[in-house]
């Protein structure tokens, strides 16, 4: 298959570049602004949120008002506070999921690319098999196996993205391992792991960082999809996907605010993360960009 762009974020980034123009730094700025906004929300949630997100603070299903900007849910909880606190779960699961994928995918890719031989062939085959499989279906299967919980959901997400790291790293390593400086190090008697860690890894790091930032938006959307299907974390912890799913029950009783605000939180976060990753891509890897 051709150079497919499998992940949402890669594409949103492309779209955003079309929209804002490239090489201007504007992307990074806007993206990091949104990202920082969400990180601040997550870290300082107790100070920012007007109410406790799991306590009844008003009547059931109150429409947006001065007291409750985003209205209340059926249990009388403030939706604004739940959306703010929800960023904690969204961010921690996407960061954790991507981190796990990184921790597994990168070493495997390094070893596979450097050692080569049958190990490389077997690993590549497994990773390719996982890569062609639709991410969400894979995540659903793993999440169903592991059951609820932050760590378990993160692992299901990690399973989806591990092959990406593996492929990027493996191909890069295979490309650089015969270059002069690696040859030189080998001739000077450097050990295998030393060569991998000291000479090869730093060289492939930039592309890894780009992939990492790209996967964040995807992980976020996958988490929302999982919790929407009821495979997420247990209540009453605020979670956008879960709240959206329970909010949809009251939509016909004219409580539109229950699905609109958590939904917008997801859209805005996915958008911001992708723009950010595209910006990072431009900064770190000006050369690998396809240009027109």
């Amino acid at each position: 298959m051709a150079r497919d762009k499998k992940f949402v974020s890669e594409r949103i980034g492309d779209f955003a570049r079309d929209l804002f123009g490239s090489g201007t730094g504007r992307l990074t700025l806007i993206g990091s602004f949104i990202l920082i906004f969400y990180v601040i929300l997550a870290v300082f949630a107790p100070y920012i949120a007007p109410y406790d997100p799991i306590e009844r603070v008003g009547l059931s299903l109150e429409p947006p008002s001065k007291d409750f900007w985003f209205g209340t849910d059926n249990l009388g909880r403030d939706i604004l506070s739940r959306v703010i606190y929800g960023s904690r779960i969204a961010l921690s699961i996407s960061f954790l999921g991507v981190a796990v994928a990184f921790i597994i995918g990168v070493p495997l890719g390094l070893i596979s690319g450097y050692v080569g031989g049958w190990l490389d062939r077997v690993l590549t085959l497994i990773m390719d098999a996982m890569y062609v499989f639709p991410g969400l279906i894979l995540a659903i299967a793993v999440a169903a196996v592991l059951g609820p919980g932050i760590v378990n959901i993160s692992i299901s997400i990690a399973v989806v993205y591990t092959p990406t790291y593996f492929r990027v790293i493996r191909n890069q390593v295979a490309a650089v391992k015969d270059e002069m400086y690696v040859e030189a190090a080998r001739a000077l008697g450097a050990k295998r792991w030393e060569i991998i860690l000291k000479y090869i890894f730093p060289n492939v790091l930039p592309s890894v960082v780009v992939v990492l930032s790209m996967n964040l938006a995807d992980a976020l959307m996958t988490e929302a999809g999982l919790s929407f299907l009821g495979l997420g974390i247990a209540p009453p912890t605020p979670d956008w996907g879960f709240d959206l799913n329970s909010g949809q029950r009251f939509v016909l009783s004219r409580a539109w605010w229950g699905i609109v605000f958590p939904g917008l939180a997801i859209v805005f976060a996915a958008l911001g993360f992708s723009i950010f990753s595209e910006g990072i891509n431009e900064l770190l890897n000006p050369t690998i960009r396809e240009r027109r």
Binding site: I12, A16, L271
Partner: peptide
């Protein structure tokens, strides 16, 4: 261009729900 950016950031289940409503 705006359409592309937005539509791809929208979770499909949410979008479907809104259209349905």
């Amino acid at each position: 261009r705006v359409y592309s950016v937005l539509l791809y950031s929208v979770p499909v289940f949410w979008f479907g729900l809104i259209l349905q409503l």
